[in-house]
Structure formats: C-alpha cells, structure tokens
Design a protein around this nucleic acid. Sequence first.
DNA 1: GTACTGTTTGGACAGTTGCCCAAGTCATCT
DNA 2: AGATGACTTGGGCAACTGTCCAAACAGTAC
Lengths: 210, 210
Amino acid sequence: MAPKSAERGKATRRQLLDAAVALVPEVGWGGVTTRLVAERAGVAPGVVHYHFASVTDLLVAAGLGFTGSLLDQMAAELSGQPGIGEGVDWLLGELSRYSGTDPASLVVVEMFLAATRLPDLRERLGDQIGRFRSTVASWLAERGYHGDAVAAAAMLAASIDGIMMHRALDPGLDPASLAAPLRAMFGLGPAEPAPPAVPPAEDIRRRRDS
Amino acid sequence: MAPKSAERGKATRRQLLDAAVALVPEVGWGGVTTRLVAERAGVAPGVVHYHFASVTDLLVAAGLGFTGSLLDQMAAELSGQPGIGEGVDWLLGELSRYSGTDPASLVVVEMFLAATRLPDLRERLGDQIGRFRSTVASWLAERGYHGDAVAAAAMLAASIDGIMMHRALDPGLDPASLAAPLRAMFGLGPAEPAPPAVPPAEDIRRRRDS
DNA sequence: GTACTGTTTGGACAGTTGCCCAAGTCATCT
DNA sequence: AGATGACTTGGGCAACTGTCCAAACAGTAC
C-alpha cells in the first residue's frame, strides 16, 4: 500500500473541509464553488471531486463538523455552570461573541437554511441540536428547575439563535440588556443577588459601554 | 402618452415581484435566476431587466415588500390583544402556522441571510424590524409591563424567529409547549385556565420572583 | 395616415458552473 | 526492475448564468 499517500490525502481532505467552512460565510452556501474551494485549499480543482462526490456533499460534511464541535463545546461549558442564573449569564456573555455577522453565526444560519432543502442534512443537524437540547434540559433539571425542563431548553436554544439573527440586523442590540427577560423565563430574579454597581470580578469578563 | 401601456407595465412588475417571492423559498435567494422568474411570471426573460436593474434589485424589492406587510399585519394584530397574556398566547398560536419550512418562514430567513451581504437590504430590513419592536414595546408598556419593555420586545421578536428556525429542524417541537417559559418571561402565571380537550397533565406551578 | 411613447420579445454575448477523465506523481510492494 | 495503489493534475465538456440590445408591438397624439 501507500500509507504516505493516504496520510497526505487525509490532510488534503481536511484542508478542503476547512476551506469550505471558511467560504460559506463569505459567499454563502450556494456561492461556494468547486474552483473556489480548491483555490482556497491550495489544490487543483479536480481534487474536490476526488474526495467528495459533489460540492453539496463537501458542504454538508464541513458544516456538520463545524456545528457538531460548536454545540459540543457549548453544551460542555454550560453544563459546567454551577447554577441556572450563572448559566444564563454565561450564555449571554457567550452570545455577545456572536454578532450575527461573524463567520460562526453565518455558518449556523446558512446550515439551517440549507437543511430545509437537504433532507439528509436536516436529519443530522436536527440530531445534533436535539442532543444539545437534551444536555441543557438535564442540566436545568439537575439544578432544580421547576417546570418542563425540555420546553425551557428548547426555548433557550431557540432564543440563542433568534438573538443571534436579530443582532445581525441591529448591531446595537446588546445581549446584556436581554438578561432580565431571559432570567425571568427561568423564574429567576430580575438581577444578580450581588449589587450590579460593583461587578463580581470573576464572573464578568468584559463589559462594554452601556 | 400611453397610459394603457403603463398600466400593463405596472401589472407585469407586480407579477415579477410575486414570482420572485414565490421562488425564494423553492430554490433559495441565490437560486432565483432571470429566466426562472420570467417563466414563473409568464413573460419573456428580457422583461426582468427592463423593470429592474438586476436580479438582486428585484429580490430586494420583492423581499422587503413581503416582510413589510407581514410585520405590519403582525404588529396590528398583536396590538389588538387586550392583555399581555392574551398577546403571548395569540403569538404562540400564530407561530404554529409558521413551521420553519413553509414559504413565509423561509423567505424571512433567506432575507436575514441576504441582508448580511447587502448593506442596503440590511438597513431597510433593520428599519422594518425596529418599527415592529417599537410597536410591541409600546403595547407592552401600555399593558403595564413592569420592566424594560424595549428589551422584552426584542426578546419576544428574537424568540419568534428562533422558534421558527428550530421548528424547521424539529417538526415535533410544539409551540404550545413553549407557552410556560414564554409566559414566565413576561412575569405571567403558568397557563391559561382554558385547556383544549386533552388536559396538559404536566403542570407547572412556578411562581415568579418578587 | 405618420410620429411618438412605453412595453415586450427572443436571441446574442462572455463568463461561470459542476462534473468528468486521461495522464501524471510518488512511495510502497513483489 | 516492474507493478500496485492512493492521490493529484489540468484541461474539456455541456449546461447555465446575468446582462444587453435591435427589433417588434402596442396604444395615444397629431
């Protein structure tokens, strides 16, 4: 055999996947072409169809890889939060990193849309999000959330994407200002028990303007 | 002059806009082509570039027309609701009509995405949604919502789109099941005392904060 | 009738697309 | 040495794209 060639092939495949993920936010899901990916990955155009049956196949694989690790990481970090209040606050802080126009946000929305036209993608992306929701629901239940934890997790997940999308149109929409209604959704008080005047140093990492 | 011709022109223009709106959910924003629109509208391909400078121009005009009337209608109907509880419930009922895979939902998401790449569209769509949020905020304030009505309106608007998107991936996600957390967001009690035939056995006796 | 206007037609144009494939490279195996 | 296998190359193909345009088609005004 030729293990050296196989290694190189794996590397090329990875480069194609990375190039595809990077290209989706720039030109849109439908704007990603064979030659564009090849050029970005630094390979000849023919390579794309050697590693993937079609550009759509490449995009599906690349997209699912991206959302999979993103959701896994978010679920893990959220599960590490001690209480529901801390979790919601952490989530809002995390959300401020996704402006709706940044590459990660755009990939997610593009995939939502592409999934409506690709049954295979829809099923697999739905599974990923279902797993995320389950993790969140368990986390809520373990923290003593009184109510339908599954419904609350669904609302939370939907809110994340909704806020992300709306921020794309209104950059002035500050996630921090949404803390009160979001906390109320989980039966939490309107504000942190600690006085907001002096922020607890470890919890708030960066607080921009007002 | 030729008023008869001008009339016919207006009608053709309308047909092109309608065809574009119908096509977006079917083939995607980027999949709408000159010839596709012309065929759907029942005119020759050249007509498109007589009435619009480019396909993008046509799509922007068609999309904004669609979202404009959709948002206006929703704002008007929501404003007609007597109380916040009724409004939220009405909204959830309305939301069940938008499965995330229906034409209207798809047009909205496609426009969000297109707006991130078309500054002109972003600004105008942002204005439309800003107006919607203002209307909702006023409606909340008039109903005695205690808290930041603007933030609550933003969360509500974002939730609508978030739920819509998530329903596209999980058709089993019932908007009605989200009533409890959504109502809690507005400091409302668990549920209305008017359940359908099948009683929602799972009861949530969640008290709000102070 | 002729002149003028706004609208419509269908084809032409240069460019891009996805996918394919014969020929090539290169390390490994017999 | 030759054969094997995985991978890469660059060009070729038919199909499609947005945009343009000379010509035809109305109706109105003179």
